[in-house]
Design a protein around this nucleic acid. Structure first.
Lengths: 295, 295
DNA sequence: TCGAGTTACGAGCCCCGTAAACATC
DNA sequence: GATGTTTACGGGGCTCGTAACTCGA
């Protein structure tokens, strides 16, 4: 289970071809073939069906392990590299769209900042593998509960902000006159599915206590990262959306009703590798008032 | 960052000696020395101080990564090995002491079972690396919240039971007459520190919302795994203890007061690798009524 | 001087590329 | 026969062991 072999394996599985993988990795087809053969004899399992080239069930399983394994390997290397490198003068920040809280924007230094928005899982990965110095992630959680983040490497998370959640509906919607809404009222509604900009529907289902996967049926799917668009889509009646209050600069045709039960908040956390220095440490100091969790 | 080199490195760090590590791994000192040198040049860092042989700060950091990396590697191998092996006829169960809920014991098959109790972190590890077919872990959590387990590999967790928590005090204790207690009343008390048998004090601090580490000061430390002993120690006045109701067959000199706030329960979960078969699947079917989480 | 880690060097193995064989469309 | 995977084989590099060297108590 040499990492080289694993890397070859995941590449072949992703591309569905030995030769394509060889091109991408800078090997010959022959070498790739030998790598796969070595893995298969080592594990005593056939990992790939040939013609077409596709993972067997065991191979699917290995893919899950291998992905996380290679990720952690990169993370370890990147983390150690920080020890060798001189302190950074600039700062790269990876954030989910809704995590760009005004408090954070206000605290950023005037120069030397690169900001990049990524989908949710990409942020921890970027911080772990050194693609970013700091990460900002948002999500729903019970008040003062830490977010559930995939633990790719030892990262430290600090709570940055918590704010109430609100349901966005068209102004004419029957529920728009309410002063508060419970999640239970909304299980059967159609919801916008905007995993990169809004809050994933899975989280709602989980919060509502139905991990089985029923309820909160998706309507339109939006694959962009702009919260304003999500709010506009909801106002136009394409489905409900749950957003933090501050992220919804309202059009006149939308109604915003606070979510009352269950008690959930929109939470933003700052993620960093350990022992930040230079501008990273400065920003952490300005933002992090209370420690959330050590992963 | 070849796993072989990492394994050599952690062994050297653990034993504090190149030659001892060489003996343990079946290499010559020379090879070990070359392994370490290779790692150090690869990463561009000095990992070990020689004479005495001890990790540098960067080396300490690598140790954290390497430990988890090697563990996951073993886990992946063990998981894949299950695909190749014929279905098991026997069943090995790893459990924390308080996780042996009567429901579980009742559901065990009559023959072919090996039961082993381990400290908390050992259970997920054992299941992941194939040391056990199934794991049972207990912990405190908010009602219907999954436990926070270290994620060493993709494991599936099923909720088995939740039951109320109670504080064990000596019969003569000033608080023993109360009909309910809040955690806030008990921050300043002395607590038994019994990480392997009772509930770790860190969890109490976290539940109380003070991750800083204050409060819940330890009194006597008990390193065994017997819950009965913990209850007896608490009854004898050596410190308070928090236990699930059912785990405290009471001596007459002890008082049991239910914990009322925050709303916490003692929860047990069943852990298994995916797609169980044979007796494993049978037990899972009998016990797992609701799925807790997929890690 | 002794214990312990490093360095020099050579033998063997492993890994990859070339090239030919083989399979499938 | 075109495309794509496997197998045979050979060279170069890597890894480990032997043994000589170095350093500190």
């Amino acid at each position: 289970m040499d990492p080289h072999l694993l890397r070859t394996y995941v590449t072949v599985a992703r591309l569905g071809s030995f030769s394509a993988a060889a091109r991408e990795l800078g090997y010959t087809q022959s070498a790739v073939s030998q790598h796969i053969a070595a893995l298969e004899t080592d594990l005593g399992l056939v990992l790939l069906g040939r013609r077409p080239v596709a993972p067997t069930p065991a191979g699917e399983r290995l893919l899950e392990h291998a992905g996380s394994l290679l990720l952690r390997l990169d993370a370890a290397r990147a983390d150690l590299a920080r020890y060798a490198a001189p302190p950074r003068r600039t700062l790269t920040l990876a954030a989910t769209p809704l995590a760009l809280h005004p408090r954070v924007l206000a605290a950023l230094p005037a120069t030397g900042v690169t900001l990049r928005t990524l989908p949710r899982d990409g942020v921890p990965t970027a911080v772990a593998t050194g693609g970013a110095d700091l990460g900002l992630v948002d999500g729903v959680a019970a008040p003062s509960d830490p977010l559930r983040l995939p633990d790719v490497a030892p990262l430290t998370a600090l709570a940055v902000a918590e704010e109430p959640l609100a349901v966005v509906l068209p102004a004419g919607h029957p529920l728009a006159r309410r002063t508060r809404l419970d999640l239970a009222d909304l299980v059967d509604a159609r919801w916008l599915d905007a995993p990169d900009a809004g809050l994933p529907l899975d989280r709602l289902r989980a919060a509502h206590g139905a991990p089985g996967g029923h309820g909160f049926r998706p309507s339109l799917r939006y694959e962009g990262t702009d919260a304003r668009t999500v709010a506009a889509l909801a106002a136009a009646g394409h489905g409900l959306a749950l957003l933090p209050r501050s992220a919804t600069p309202l059009a006149s045709d939308a109604a915003l009703v606070p979510l009352a039960a269950p008690r959930l908040v929109h939470r933003t956390e700052l993620l960093h590798g350990r022992e930040p220095d230079g501008p990273v440490a400065e920003l952490v100091r300005r933002l992090g008032h209370r420690e959330a969790a050590d992963r």
